[in-house]
Write a protein that binds this DNA or RNA. Structure first.
Length: 407
DNA sequence: ACTCCACAGGAATTGAGGGGTG
DNA sequence: CACCCCTCAATTCCTGTGGAGT
């Protein structure tokens, strides 16, 4: 058998089972799209639409719906000869207003997304080193070269954190700098609490309209998977229980289409790799485990060496069946382990932050205990222990430690 | 009913490090 | 090159908390 094979036994078009593929017909989002259209409708009368705050869990079609509705709006505007500019920016990885501003400027100057209709001939600016004032000025200048309405979509805006200066400045920019353009902001967030964390002024302006996207239920997820598999997979490669199973997994967990799709895709990949012609429950369950490992791996990539050390501490406690454990226990154990690896242990406060970080990665879960005299947190792992161990084993520093542990 | 423990987590600050500008 | 700017892990200091103990 050749090492290389042309074509695939399972897939016809694998890209359709990827995150960025947007179907022509979004399933189960009709009501949301209608409301969305209503809010944006003033654009067609030449008015400035309200700012919109859009929230809902990951993978419930927020970004896809936004792209869909804005594409329709751009079409409508073109027909009616109304000037509309759209800037679409994903804020993932941007941790300050400064960075958001830089990326807005560069996004406008280098339209990588088809949705971005704004273009200028100017060169992109550096992402670091420049004074904040300078960056903000560049942004304002770029706006100055436009006319009509500008809609700035800030996807995953919660990733920017507590620094909401840019969210304060953007909606006010046209008044404050006497610009010709009207600027509206659409903020998309996975985090319900993000809205409450905003300063009152920002909340008032950004949240003029609030749209909420429900998680998908199992039936909707099944429809979504069917819609995609018809195009992505060869006929009859799925056992009947595969789609319901993937949907059920995702519906129980997050209600996320993304989760259901990547589960299905992973199951198909596993089947293909093992030369299995028909994907069944076995592959779905295997895929579930593999995705967990990937989740841990991805989480680990963002960890500092100290963060990894804390994860090591947690897994040692897990092996010794000491979980869930309270912060104090974890911290004490961590100090010993740090010492053992000739590393300086962090202060208590900082380890809290690392534990919180691991929790937000979905690797740990936190339980709040209020037992009078001293309320405390306990942590336990939220993924299979073997997933964590298999990832930690790839760390040179901890390889040996893990091996001793598992024997 | 009132105190007070023992912890959670917010705010301010530091210091090293990367980069830009003239 | 000197000087300015932003970033991020980490520290220090501090306030908030809620029911068990009295």
């Amino acid at each position: 058998m050749s090492r290389f094979e042309v074509g695939s036994t399972i897939f016809t078009d694998k890209d359709i089972l990827s995150e960025d593929w947007i179907p022509e017909q979004l399933i189960g989002r009709d009501d949301e799209l209608d409301t969305y259209a209503e809010v944006l409708n003033p654009v067609l009368n030449g008015w400035n639409p309200n700012n919109i705050f859009l929230y809902g869990r990951t993978g419930v079609g927020k970004s896809a719906s936004t792209k869909e509705i804005l594409t329709e709006l751009l079409d409508a505007c073109e027909k009616a000869d109304i000037s509309l500019n759209v800037v679409f920016l994903n804020c993932n990885g941007l941790s300050s207003s400064y960075q958001v501003a830089v990326h807005l400027v560069n996004e406008m100057r280098n339209s990588r997304y088809s949705l971005t209709t704004v273009t200028t001939e100017l060169d992109p600016i550096s992402e670091t080193g420049l004074p904040k004032k300078r960056v903000f000025n560049e942004l304002i200048n770029d706006f100055e070269n436009l006319s009509g309405n500008v809609i700035c979509v800030l996807d995953e805006v919660d990733k920017v954190g507590s620094d909401d200066e840019i969210l304060y400045e953007l909606p006010r920019a046209s008044t404050n700098y006497d610009l010709d353009v009207n600027i509206s902001v659409i903020g998309i967030s996975n985090d319900f609490k993000f809205r409450d964390g905003l300063s009152a002024k920002v909340r008032d302006s950004l949240c003029e309209e609030e749209l909420f996207f429900d998680p998908y239920d199992a039936t909707e997820l099944q429809q979504i998977l069917k819609q995609r598999t018809e195009k992505a997979l060869k006929p009859d490669v799925l056992n009947d229980d595969v789609i319901p199973l993937c949907s059920a997994f995702a519906a129980n967990d997050t209600g996320s289409a993304r989760q259901a799709i990547s589960l299905l895709r992973k199951a198909c990949e596993i089947a293909e790799r093992n030369n299995i012609d028909i994907v069944s429950e076995t592959e779905v369950r295997e895929a579930e485990t593999q995705l967990q490992i990937e989740q841990v791996e991805e989480g680990m990539r963002s960890l500092t060496p100290q963060g990894k050390l804390i994860l090591l501490t947690i897994s040692i406690l897990a092996v010794n069946d000491k979980l869930p454990a309270r912060t104090k226990t974890i911290y004490n154990r961590y100090q010993t382990i740090a010492d053992h690896h000739n590393k300086n242990a962090l202060q208590r406060r900082r380890t809290h932050d690392h534990l919180e970080e691991l929790t937000s990665q979905g690797i740990l879960t936190l339980t709040d205990n209020n037992q009078g005299r001293g309320n405390y947190n306990t942590y336990t792992i939220d993924v299979e222990l073997k997933s964590i161990l298999s990832v930690l084993k790839t760390e040179q520093d901890y390889k040996e430690h893990i091996q001793r542990l598992t024997n």
